[in-house]
Simulated assay, not measured.
Amino acid sequence: MLPHRLITALCLSLSPAAALAHPHVYIDAGLTLILDDSGALTGFEVEWSYDELYSLLIIEDMGLDQDGDGVLTEEENALIQGFDSDWEPGFDGRLYPRVDGRPVVLEDVRDFTAEYRDGRLISRHLHPLAEPLPMEAPLQVQVYDPEFYVDFSMPEVPVIEGREDCEVELIPGDPSAAPDAYREAIEAVLGAGTDPAEADVVTVDIGSAGADEADIRCDPGQGG
């Protein structure tokens, strides 16, 4: 099974018997903000580092690293390029930048690359903005899966390329928030008297609950 079939799931099927949500894939996300000569944000370079277990499952599913030394040959490395790039048009990429609470419009992703290092599959892609964003107001960025099938974390402070007058604060999320949101959604559905047999699918944006957040502030007088 290829990763994109998991990453691009559109809804979370909730069984009334399930106690709480739990992720099946863990990804460390890294971000680099790309700014143009005027100091406006034009896009994000995104890195996804998959957990070791999931990486191993993909490597074995693709029949790679037959000698088990953890190093891919040149031919094998070519085969993993774009392994998680088959996204539906308009897929959000699990990247959510906001200014004043409003989402920043993104274009479709491009320029996929990948490598296998230290037992982890690491993929990278470029996620451009629909139009340049002047960094005149604080920017908040989160990376999360709304359905919490994938547990994203942002272990490192995002990097900014193109300006030196910006400050970045990484605010760690609450690991218990998403499972709690799941439990509350289940209780709300059943508490409303919904027949459990009919409440077989509930769409809940629980991934944003407790997600790590990067807050970026640039000197509005320094752009350009």
Rank of each mutant, 00 (worst) to 15 (best):
P175G: 08
S176M: 15
S176N: 14
S176V: 13
S176Y: 14
S176I: 13
S176W: 14
A178D: 02
A178T: 03
A178F: 00
A178L: 02
P179R: 03
P179N: 03
P179Q: 01
P179Y: 04
D180T: 15
D180S: 15
D180E: 15
A181V: 09
A181L: 11
Y182C: 03
Y182N: 04
R183W: 11
R183K: 10
R183I: 10
R183L: 12
R183M: 11
R183A: 13
R183V: 09
E184V: 12
E184N: 12
A185Q: 09
A185K: 08
A185M: 11
I186H: 10
I186W: 11
I186T: 12
E187M: 12
E187P: 08
E187T: 12
E187A: 14
V189C: 13
V189G: 12
V189K: 10
L190Y: 09
L190S: 05
L190I: 09
L190N: 05
L190H: 07
G191Q: 06
G191V: 04
G191L: 07
A192V: 07
A192R: 09
A192P: 07
G193V: 08
G193T: 07
T194V: 15
T194D: 15
T194Q: 14
D195I: 06
P196L: 09
P196G: 08
A197L: 13
A197S: 13
A199F: 08
A199N: 03
A199D: 06
A199I: 05
A199C: 05
A199Q: 02
D200R: 14
D200K: 14
D200V: 15
V201C: 13
V201T: 12
V201Y: 12
V201E: 13
V201W: 10
V201N: 11
V202M: 08
V202H: 06
T203Y: 13
T203C: 15
T203I: 14
T203F: 14
T203W: 10
V204D: 08
V204K: 01
V204Y: 02
D205F: 03
I206M: 06
G207L: 00
G207H: 00
G207R: 00
S208C: 07
S208D: 09
A209M: 06
A209R: 06
A209F: 11
A209P: 01
G210W: 00
G210L: 01
A211C: 02
A211G: 01
D212V: 05
D212Y: 06
E213T: 10
E213H: 02
A214F: 05
A214H: 03
D215R: 12
I216R: 02
I216M: 03
C218Q: 08
D219P: 04
P220S: 03
P220H: 01
P220I: 00
G221M: 00
G221E: 05
G221A: 05
